[in-house]
Amino acid sequence: GSPAPLRTGQPAPAERSASSAQSTQRVFIKITPGAELKGLLPRLQALLQTHPGPAATLLFYERNQKVLALSDSYRIEPSEELFAAIESMLGAGTVRIR
């Protein structure tokens, strides 16, 4: 799937508009049992809040195979820098974008 072209003529609005919600990317972060044991979730949430953006964040708990969608306050701006920080915290291959 190629990324949808941005609407020409105007920069994307920074504020969250409900009309564009269906085209928003979603970021899946895998939470391994080890990450849960180490108590890394508060650190992850703090990290996410330093990269606010349009993409919804979902946590996939490997231990019980459950997906938890985080609230809108944890929407993020996907970037290689952010994903590298998440993977250094939680392990390689723990971040997926859809």
Rank of each mutant, 00 (worst) to 15 (best):
P3F: 08
A4H: 12
A4V: 14
A4T: 13
P5L: 11
P5Q: 11
P5Y: 08
L6C: 10
G9K: 11
G9V: 14
Q10M: 14
P11W: 10
P11V: 09
A12W: 15
P13W: 09
P13N: 12
P13H: 10
A14I: 14
A14K: 15
E15Q: 14
S19Y: 13
Q22H: 15
Q25Y: 13
F28W: 06
F28D: 06
F28S: 06
F28K: 02
I29P: 03
K30P: 06
K30Y: 00
T32K: 02
P33H: 04
P33G: 02
A35T: 00
E36D: 09
K38T: 09
G39E: 00
G39M: 04
L41E: 08
L41H: 12
L41W: 12
P42S: 02
P42T: 06
L44G: 03
Q45G: 08
Q45E: 11
A46I: 04
A46H: 07
A46N: 02
L48F: 07
T50N: 15
G53V: 09
P54S: 15
A55V: 04
A55Q: 05
A55I: 07
A56E: 13
A56K: 12
T57N: 01
T57V: 08
F60C: 10
Y61S: 11
Y61R: 08
N64D: 13
Q65D: 15
L68F: 15
A69G: 13
D72F: 09
D72V: 01
S73I: 11
S73P: 06
E77V: 00
P78F: 01
P78S: 05
L82Y: 07
L82G: 02
F83N: 07
A85G: 02
I86H: 04
E87L: 09
S88V: 04
M89V: 10
M89T: 07
A92T: 07
G93A: 10
G93P: 08
T94H: 03
R96F: 01
I97L: 01
